[in-house]
Computed example of a mutant assay.
Amino acid sequence: MPDRPPTPVDRVLPTAEARQLMTLVRDIARREIAPAAAAEEDAGRFPRELFTLLSESGLLGLPYDSAHGGGDQPYEVYLQVLEELAAARLTVGLGVSVHTLAAYPLAAHGTREQRAAQLPAVLGGGLLGAYCLSEPSSGSDAASLRTRAVREGRGDWVITGTKAWITHGGIADFYTVMARTGGEGARGITAFLVPADAVGLSAAAPERKMGLKGSPTAQVHFDGVRVPDARRIGDEGQGFAIALAALDSGRLGIAACAVGLAQAALDEAVAYAVRRRQFGRPIADFQGLRFLLADMATRIEAGRALYLAAARLRDAGRPFARQAAMAKLHCTDAAMQITVDAVQVLGGYGYSADFPVERYLREAKVLQIVEGTNQIQRMVIARHLLGPESR
């Protein structure tokens, strides 16, 4: 364990309310999340009680309208909250990000009646959401999804198919589902809000993953699941556009989580370097290691600045998809390199499960894959640079 706790990140927050919020988040992270993180990840235990606490504390709806139970916070603030949570335990930070992603279609594209009826429970009523886009045969090529919703009469849809790699699969209270209601391609997809207790909905056993073992990821099966038209979100055929808009914001969540994880790894590396002695002095005195730590810190600061710049564009109502892709790309690649370097700083101890950097390294890898692989992010960035006609 470090001889002293890490110095908190020096944040510039826009309001006194945001500063008070950050104090609350840090207190929850220090008291409730971090102490049990290693043991619970090792046991593969999902901390549902923490998400109940976060909901009761108003932290599951921060970027949404307070009229429906949200926190009225700009993305600039919300993402820094995610970073703090992820630094304490990635399962928690990522879980909040996924829940926020799952709530986006309803919050942004639901009717007034849908928002009034559903959002309060989603944002502050203790519910936990999951986002269902990927399928066994359609990952990066998400527009080729095969899950189908067929209309029966005027009132119901019947959904049949399988979704894959679903965070919170099997434990979520609701699933935001993209299903095909028309022809092939992006224009035939529609979004639905499906309750977890719907007849015909089931989840497979969780995937066995190299990291994030406390966060269940599973296939979710829809075997003739009947959903009323009142739970269709947006117009028929609008689902893929809604899904992509949600992912633009969700990628910023992943970027913030990556920075939090990288910051935790740097904090561990610095604390170890200060107290570990070799050749009669702390290893922090050796220039090669000092330069390594400096590079790690610089990558983190650059990533934080990049995700905050994208968040401020979003908050201003300006296009931010390119910057979101850049933030997700840079921050997750940086987290991967920083966790590798943290293991190197600790040497043999870094390779041991008795120290957290081993876990951080295993967790960092998935951030380069979720919500669009980093190869997809490069495609998105290049398309913005070269024009939509480029391939």
Rank of each mutant, 00 (worst) to 15 (best):
120 P>L: 00
323 Q>M: 08
318 R>M: 15
121 A>S: 11
261 L>A: 08
330 H>A: 11
390 S>M: 11
153 G>M: 05
84 E>R: 06
318 R>Q: 15
149 A>W: 00
263 Q>M: 09
32 E>R: 13
36 A>F: 09
207 E>I: 07
203 A>T: 09
352 S>P: 11
151 R>W: 02
212 L>C: 03
217 T>Y: 06
3 D>L: 15
380 V>E: 07
287 Q>M: 11
342 A>H: 04
232 R>L: 03
242 I>V: 14
333 D>G: 02
348 G>K: 09
219 Q>N: 15
215 S>M: 13
92 V>P: 08
64 Y>I: 01
230 A>S: 14
378 R>V: 03
306 L>C: 10
271 A>E: 12
378 R>G: 09
313 L>D: 10
342 A>Y: 00
18 A>L: 06
8 P>F: 04
364 A>K: 02
141 D>W: 07
360 Y>Q: 06
121 A>V: 00
225 V>S: 00
233 I>F: 00
318 R>E: 14
298 T>Y: 07
152 E>S: 09
126 G>W: 02
375 Q>V: 12
91 T>I: 06
388 P>I: 08
292 L>K: 15
14 P>V: 06
356 P>M: 13
23 T>H: 13
167 T>M: 07
390 S>N: 11
128 L>E: 05
182 G>S: 07
141 D>N: 15
270 V>T: 13
339 T>L: 06
55 S>A: 08
239 G>W: 01
53 L>P: 02
31 R>C: 10
242 I>N: 03
85 L>E: 06
117 A>Y: 02
287 Q>W: 13
24 L>I: 11
196 A>T: 11
114 Q>F: 00
56 E>W: 03
337 Q>E: 12
148 R>I: 05
